[in-house]
């Protein structure tokens, strides 16, 4: 009991929560954009990997940190375009296409890494995004190290929550995206392009996912490892259902997940002697499954999710 209180009273725990949540915020927002437009994007796991690899590689080659983030976003957008072309105008199975994009993006990232760096045993490192000390606030006891010493990408993630929320609820574009995921016939009748809206939303969402991946190699760590995404993409697909496709709830879900994950790591150090470490490592995945089961009952899926739509056919 004392151990648990000690964990919660330590600002490092809260800082870790936010650090773990950051890539998930990008991923859940990306999945949310795609699904709100009616397209399930199971390419997410591979797009995370491609973003992690492309962003890091660009920075390592001298494009600068923000140049790397941009490269990651473009790579994500391109894989998103592939998924969107297959699933929107061609109307192919979103499940199969998404898994195909994950396999393709992952193998492109791994093949590219191995081809560029054939002989390295320890991966080369970059100078990652530094923590930004918010003036004055970062000096505060407890709250300073917990909340106000994060990298620029964490602030970007928070900014993207606001942007996605604002676009989706306050702009005609957001209304159109939501409508195209609920009732594409109505959008078509308005003279808007169903294909254009869906392809654009999937590309933007995929770019966000890739930036989430870039956070891993450019802020959380400073190098690219095989298997480093480790199911984070799939967890985002579960979290977006938990968040009922709403941006603020997505932020909340990612933070809640980050807190559990940071907590289990600390429990592991406290109780690692008596309990096998794998039991702790399992908890994030099991929690995601539980969250999915709990949310599934009241889940209000976008009505046209998974349903292909062809112009001129009702």
């Amino acid at each position: 009991m004392i151990e648990i209180l000690e964990i919660l009273a330590n600002p490092n725990f809260w800082a870790a929560t936010i650090r773990i949540a950051t890539p998930l915020v990008f991923g859940v927002l990306g999945a949310l954009l795609c699904e709100r437009a009616g397209v399930l994007n199971l390419g997410i796991e591979g797009i995370f990997t491609a973003g992690a690899m492309a962003g890091w590689m660009a920075a390592w080659l001298g494009a600068g940190l923000w140049g790397g983030v941009l490269v990651a976003a473009v790579a994500g957008g391109l894989f998103g375009l592939l998924h969107a072309v297959l699933t929107v105008p061609l109307g192919l199975s979103q499940h199969v296409s998404g898994l195909g994009v994950t396999l393709l993006a992952t193998s492109v990232a791994y093949f590219g890494y191995r081809t560029a760096l054939p002989d390295v045993s320890s991966p080369p490192r970059i100078e990652p995004f530094p923590p930004l000390d918010v003036p004055l606030l970062s000096e505060l006891p407890f709250f300073g190290p917990a909340l106000f010493q994060h990298t620029a990408l964490t602030w970007l993630a928070l900014g993207m929550v606001v942007v996605v929320w604002w676009v989706m609820t306050r702009t005609p574009l957001g209304l159109a995206i939501r409508a195209v995921g609920d009732n594409p016939d109505a959008v078509d009748a308005q003279g808007l392009s169903v294909y254009g809206l869906r392809i654009g939303a999937v590309m933007a969402g995929s770019a966000l996912m890739a930036v989430g991946g870039a956070f891993l190699t450019m802020a959380a760590f400073d190098a690219f490892f095989f298997g480093m995404v480790n199911g984070r993409g799939w967890i985002c697909i579960a979290l977006v259902i938990f968040a009922s496709w709403r941006p603020w709830k997505a932020l909340f879900g990612a933070l809640l997940f980050g807190a559990f994950d940071a907590f289990q790591v600390r429990l592991q150090t406290a109780f690692g002697e008596e309990v096998p470490g794998q039991l702790f490592l399992m908890t994030p995945y099991i929690l995601s499954i539980i969250a999915l089961v709990v949310a599934a009952r009241r889940a209000d899926y976008p009505r046209a999710l998974l349903a292909p739509w062809f112009k001129g056919q009702r």
């Binding site: 199971l42 499940h95 480790n230 199911g231 799939w234 967890i235 697909i237 579960a238 259902i241 096998p276 794998q278 039991l279 490592l281 399992m282 995945y285 099991i286 995601s288 499954i289 999915l292 089961v293 599934a296 009952r297 889940a299």
Partner: peptide, 23 residues
């Protein structure tokens, strides 16, 4: 029983099972 999407649950179980095997 609950309408939980099996794509996500089977994917996540892969990670759980692999950790269980390691354990």
């Amino acid at each position: 029983r609950f309408g939980a999407d099996e794509v996500v649950t089977t994917l996540l179980l892969n990670f759980v099972i692999l950790l269980f095997v390691q354990m």
